[in-house]
Design a protein around this nucleic acid. Structure first.
Length: 571
RNA sequence: GACUCGUUAGCUCAGCUGGUAGAGCAACGGCCUUUUAAGCCGUGGGUCCUGCGUUCGAGUCGCAGACGAGUCACCA
């Protein structure tokens, strides 16, 4: 591994700390009696509280002024300034701990513990007067230094690739990132509270499934060795949860990681989280009321208001939300009533509306296309869209009064679907037909068509009570609640292409092959990390590159002869 | 998968019509006992993403590739 100048300096500092008899990675626990947030909030100089406290955190900035210094410490609650005075931490004659260890060997990024009293400086900043300082963990990799004044951030750490690949750094230096993730957890806590208060049972169902079902999507495929059997990572857990309703539970839910082998963009990550809920003896109207109530509660829990600024829009989750049937929505946005149209008329209408269509599309698909093109993006405030075409919804119950439709709704917020729910199909014969239609689609090449799940059908045949089911996208909801533009901002470790890892040979491998050490340095710098890579290069070219590098960087080394270089490459 | 943009010091970024690679922060050596994007003096740090080509000469121009971002398609 090649180290930067700063990394080498830090490693040297680490060795020096050790040789001074200080363990830079002590094993024993460090007692903490206060955190930055409570000190800044509750310190009162007249009361004289927060005396003799102990706090641990990461050094985020240092301001040295000779015998006195200030460091900003960041703990999990925020930042607080510590005042480090030479004569306080080195009361005796020996000032080495301050002069050498603190001033020279500690760095931004190191984690330290401090004991002392809280006071207010002349400039009015609540600070800790440090009486004792303990190194808890030495950092040997420099951290980006982000500074801020009057709300202006200087040298912000913004490169998306580095932020997502090294989320730990993102979390350290970008406080708003922390906040978004804390909100994500508050969101799931709030939702879980809501569901538990209604006595629904939180359950776990298989992620590895022999048949992937419950949604239309391409799966990830894997293999179990002992069973010698193909397994799929789940794309949904719907069918398993319904089996539990058959089994006699009245309400079951699961926060489920689902996996879909499809495109990635700012709204899609290959693994994502859904909360699915199934409640017996309910229908989709009932479920709409539940969604409104639950999401309104979440907004209040997270932001203390039902209004949330998302991009340019102020979104209000206050109940009740607008409700449109799909046909009403299309009429509202296009002025065309399609409710009585047959396939041919729909096709013509779509063409007139400039909705891209092709001959393979059936009635349901055409309606869905028109809705997607003309309506969905315009629905900014929370809106329920109800009554979808049966062709799109093989697991939803036929509409109680409207032929060709199912009892299904989606909630659309900021132009995006956040949840999907049905009155669940519990007629086993109808369900079997729907699966068979899906099989037909599959044969015609629809890779997302559902597979026929005999065990699921068997359970429905045993008898499932009328049930309403819901799937709500946790990532999407979090994006809205935190005003995040990308799903990658609400998933700690979003999927990315694997980093290429470089193989690097130790210097001695080159030296043992007869290459002078000074040239080993140059060779590795210009890209020959392994000895083997030399043999893949022509000696003449290598010779030129080496001499060129020597000249360009004014190394003043004696150039090797072409014959020497030939020996290195084995020519 | 297609198109557009990006990749220069540890971080954030300049670098014009091709001519010896720059700044701020960070680092290093000094000075400084209540500072706060601390300050002052000094120093070091770069296969300019990779490869090929054009050229006397490429960070800069051309082609190919890697990685990332955005838009579109599929999808939650």
């Amino acid at each position: 591994m090649e180290l930067s100048e700063q990394e080498i300096i830090r490693r040297n500092s680490l060795q020096e700390i050790i040789s001074l008899g200080i363990n830079p990675y002590p094993a024993s626990k460090y007692e903490i009696t206060a955190n930055s947030e409570e000190i800044l909030k509750d310190f009162n100089a007249e009361k004289g509280n927060f005396q003799d406290i102990s706090l641990a955190g990461r050094i985020m900035s240092r301001r040295m002024m000779g015998k006195a210094s200030f460091v900003e410490l960041q703990d999990s609650h925020g930042r607080i300034q510590a005042y480090v005075n030479r004569d306080f931490i080195c009361p005796g004659e020996d000032k080495e701990f301050y002069n050498t260890v603190f001033k020279r060997l500690l760095d931004i990024g190191d984690i330290i513990g401090v004991k002392g009293d809280v006071f207010i400086t002349q400039t009015g900043e609540t600070s800790i007067r440090v009486k004792e300082l303990t190194i808890l963990s030495k950092s040997i990799r420099p951290l980006p230094v982000v500074k801020e004044k009057d709300g202006v951030v200087y040298d912000a750490f913004t490169d998306p690739e580095q932020r997502y690949r090294q989320r730990y750094i993102d979390l350290i230096v970008n406080p708003h990132v922390r906040e978004a993730f804390i909100k994500r957890t508050k969101l799931t806590n709030s939702m879980r509270e809501f569901l538990n208060s209604r006595s629904y049972l939180e359950v776990e169902t298989p992620i590895l499934q022999p048949i992937h079902g419950g949604a239309a999507a391409r799966p990830f495929k894997t293999h179990h060795n002992t069973l010698d059997q193909t397994l799929y990572l789940r794309i949904a857990n719907e069918l398993y949860l319904k089996k539990l309703i058959v089994g006699g539970f009245d309400g079951v839910y699961e926060f489920a990681k689902d996996f879909r082998n499809e495109g990635m963009d700012r709204f899609h990550n290959p693994e994502f989280t859904q909360m699915e809920l199934y409640v017996a003896y309910k229908d989709y109207f009932w479920m709409m009321d539940l969604v409104e109530e639950m999401v309104e509660k979440i907004a209040l829990d997270l932001n203390k208001t039902t209004e949330i600024q998302v991009g340019e829009h102020l979104i209000n989750f206050k109940r009740p939300w607008k409700r449109f049937t799909m046909f009403e929505a299309i009429e509202h946005f296009t002025g065309v009533d399609i409710s009585q149209m047959d396939e041919k008329q729909l096709f013509e209408t779509a063409r007139k509306l400039n909705v891209p269509v092709d001959e393979t599309m059936g009635k349901g698909k055409l309606i869905d296309e028109i809705f997607g093109e003309k309506c969905e993006g315009n629905l900014i405030q929370p809106t329920f869209i109800t009554d979808y075409p049966v062709e799109m919804s093989p697991l939803a119950k036929k509409h109680r009064s409207k032929a060709g439709l199912v009892e299904r709704f989606e909630a659309i917020v900021n132009g995006k679907e956040i949840c999907n729910a049905y009155s669940e199909l519990n007629d086993p014969l109808d369900q079997r037909e729907r699966f068979e239609q899906q099989l037909e689609l599959g044969k015609r090449g629809d890779e997302e068509a559902m597979m026929l799940d005999e065990d699921f059908l068997r359970s429905i045949e045993v008898g499932m009570p009328p049930t309403s089911g819901l799937g709500i996208g946790i990532d999407r909801l979090t994006m809205i609640m935190t005003n995040s533009a990308s799903i990658q901002d609400v998933i700690f470790f979003p999927q990315m292409r694997a980093e290429k890892k470089e193989q690097i040979d130790g210097k001695e491998i080159f030296i043992n092959a007869g290459i002078p050490e000074t040239w080993v340095q140059v060779l590795q710098t210009i890209g020959f990390k392994t000895f083997k890579s030399l043999s893949e290069q022509k000696a003449a070219k290598l010779h030129q590159d080496l001499c060129g590098y020597n000249k360009k960087n004014k190394l003043d080394l004696k150039n090797p002869s072409i014959d020497e270089v030939k020996k290195w490459t084995g020519e």
